[in-house]
Simulated assay, not measured.
Amino acid sequence: MDFSTIIQNVGFPIACCMALGYYLNNKDKADREERKEDKIADREREDRLLQANTELLVTNKQLAESVEIIAKDMKEDINRTEAKVDKILEKVGV
């Protein structure tokens, strides 16, 4: 059925309302499909971000452990150096 036949049968205002309803229905379907695709893309992005965050947490934990080991070694080196300085001061007599 073409638009002119609908106008002849039900009148111009009703035909325009029907055309508008048809347009809005199709637009709504297209919008729903687009939102569905956006939602899927957002979930995929979130999954990638969660995976990256998990990897960063593991890396940060490893770095923190390394820094602790290095700090402990440095503290031991400082203590040994202080002990040697104390021995030198005793020998010098200061």
Rank of each mutant, 00 (worst) to 15 (best):
D2T: 02
F3I: 02
F3H: 06
T5Y: 02
T5H: 04
T5N: 04
Q8G: 10
Q8D: 04
N9R: 15
G11L: 02
G11A: 08
P13A: 09
I14R: 08
I14W: 00
I14N: 07
C17R: 14
C17K: 14
A19C: 04
G21L: 11
G21E: 10
Y22C: 08
L24M: 11
L24N: 04
N25M: 12
N25E: 09
N26V: 06
N26S: 13
K27V: 11
K29L: 15
K29V: 13
A30W: 01
A30V: 09
D31P: 01
D31C: 08
R32M: 12
E34M: 15
E37F: 03
D38A: 14
K39P: 00
K39H: 13
I40D: 04
I40R: 04
I40T: 06
I40H: 05
D42E: 11
E44C: 07
E46M: 14
D47C: 04
R48L: 13
L50K: 09
Q51E: 10
N53R: 10
E55S: 01
L56G: 02
L57V: 02
L57C: 04
V58T: 07
V58A: 08
T59D: 02
T59E: 01
T59W: 00
K61A: 07
Q62F: 09
Q62C: 03
L63T: 03
L63C: 04
L63Q: 08
A64Q: 05
A64D: 06
S66F: 01
E68I: 01
I69F: 12
I69T: 14
I70Y: 11
A71S: 11
A71K: 14
D73W: 13
D73M: 14
D73A: 13
M74N: 01
K75Q: 09
K75N: 08
K75H: 06
K75Y: 10
E76Q: 12
E76P: 00
I78R: 01
I78K: 01
I78F: 01
R80W: 14
R80M: 15
T81I: 09
T81H: 03
T81A: 12
E82F: 02
V85Y: 05
V85I: 08
E90A: 06
E90Q: 05
V94S: 04
